[in-house]
Amino acid sequence: MPDTHEDDIALRVRAIESLLIEKGLVQPAALAAIVETYETKIGPHNGAQVVARAWTDPAFKARLLSDATAAIAEMGFSGVQGEDMVVVENTPAVHNMVVCTLCSCYPWPTLGLPPNWYKSAPYRARAVIDPRGVLNEFGVDLPPDKEVRVWDSNAELRYLVLPERPPGTEGMDAAALAALVTRDAMIGTGTVAAGQGAAQ
């Protein structure tokens, strides 16, 4: 097997799937339910609700920064690849950015499954050694006196960035604010602007 050509992959996957089902090791309904959950229910719109609430509810924000797992669970988001969460806050002085250099660790309950670039060699290689260059590639240009903190999620903690609330959003409620929050802003490769949106 090891060096499977891509042409053979689809066939190989069908073969393994059919064998596992035949042997009673995989229930097709369970497989379908799992995929459906990640395709329809879990995604960055969850994280965006967490961020918007933190922007509008100071007591929630305090809980989020001191015990992120519990605070996020209050909003109904928990479980696989979000069992032990840490939220890091962007401020005028600090910008946070998350990577997993060793594999693809990512907070599934709040952001869904990671995009390809997050799991790929270029981002994992450069995020730690050249975070400002990476941010430039994402269109984020930080002043030199702002501190960049890179979080390499190498163990079992999973990280979510709490972006800065953009100016010009003072009158907006949590639902309107959530619509502004992008996935990349919660990874730290983006920021939130008043006119932008939205986490899919």
């Binding site: 090791l25 369970a30 959950t37 879990i42 928990s78 479980g79 032990d84 079992e156």
Partner: peptide
């Protein structure tokens, strides 16, 4: 095999390494 009835609970609970 993982039964379909357990899927939601599995996803919502996960398996902490703590």
């Amino acid at each position: 095999a993982l039964p379909v009835e357990q899927v939601d609970g599995l996803i919502a609970t996960g398996a902490s390494a703590r």
